[in-house]
């Protein structure tokens, strides 16, 4: 079973600081990590490869620095990594990102399953996985929470939806987007880290993936960000201290009064 895992390098959100004046993110000194929700996909890919054989390859579109994410994925246990990097890719929205990734996947050619994260913690759209499937004309099973088994060319999967779990049979090749429940990501091993350090990571540009220049990057993106601002937190918290019986009683009373006033109880 040959698997491709698209992963994104994102800023560590814990560390996100905003420039109050411009409303933009301060990127200096911010640590970059693998999109945490992609770790579950990486782990599932490793488990499937261990059970059914084949190769598991990470691909990432981003600046040259994104190769760190690929090396980390290899340290966890993926076999290879491919970086898509080209100035022409800059400013891509989800449409253009998925286009470039799907072109790269076409170039890799030999694949059975593509596993994406549920969403990236920076862009936070969850659109790239289904969009890759659309470009490649593949079925997409989204919000996968459990892999049950694989037999006669069909995967049996659980899909988390609003009121429960769908049980799906999905034929290969296909695209999956996975949620946290699907796996427990392992930590990189020492041997994995050594392998990652030595790994030879091909870097593909727009020409390498035979991308139509009008469809990549900002030019290929149907959407435009026209304004960015910081949401105002306008709540005034009324704080009540509860450190003994009397004050606890009073604090609770205050809460019930508020809930009654707002017709919440």
């Amino acid at each position: 079973m040959n698997i491709i895992v698209p992963i994104k390098q994102v800023p560590e959100t814990n560390a996100v600081r905003m420039d109050e004046a411009t409303g933009t993110m301060i990127r200096d000194g911010v640590v970059s990590i693998i999109n945490p929700l992609d770790l579950y996909g990486i782990e599932l890919a490793i488990e499937l490869r261990e059970r059914f054989g084949g190769r598991a390859t990470a691909i990432s579109m981003g600046p040259p620095k994104a190769e760190e994410a690929l090396r980390e994925a290899i340290a966890m246990g993926l076999d290879d990594g491919i970086l898509l990097s080209d100035r022409a890719f800059a400013g891509a929205d989800t449409w253009a990102t998925a286009y470039a990734l799907s072109q790269a996947i076409r170039k890799i050619g030999d694949y059975d399953v593509i596993i994406c994260g549920e969403r990236a913690t920076d862009g936070d759209t969850g659109q790239v996985g289904p969009a890759i499937a659309a470009f490649l004309d593949l079925p997409v099973a989204s919000y996968i929470s459990k892999f049950e088994d694989f037999s006669e060319g069909q995967m049996r999967l659980h899909r988390l939806v609003e009121d429960g779990y769908e049980i799906l049979q999905v034929g290969l090749p296909c695209v999956l987007t996975v949620v946290k429940e699907v796996s427990n990501p392992r930590l990189p091993t020492l041997r994995g880290k050594q392998k990652a350090r030595k790994a030879d990571l091909p870097v593909w540009n727009a020409a390498d993936i035979e991308a139509d220049p009008t469809l990549v990057g900002l030019k290929g993106s149907p959407t435009r960000v026209v304004k960015i601002h910081r949401p105002k937190v306008s709540r005034q918290c009324e704080k009540a201290l509860a450190n003994d019986e009397a004050s606890t009683d009073q604090a609770v009373r205050g809460l019930l009064d508020l809930l009654e006033k707002r017709e919440l109880i």
Binding site: V16, M18, G23, D124, V225, K227, I228, R230, P231
Partner: peptide
Amino acid sequence: PAIGGNILATIKTP
């Protein structure tokens, strides 16, 4: 909202 609710982005499709 984007970046964990840190910013609000207004987007259009011209």
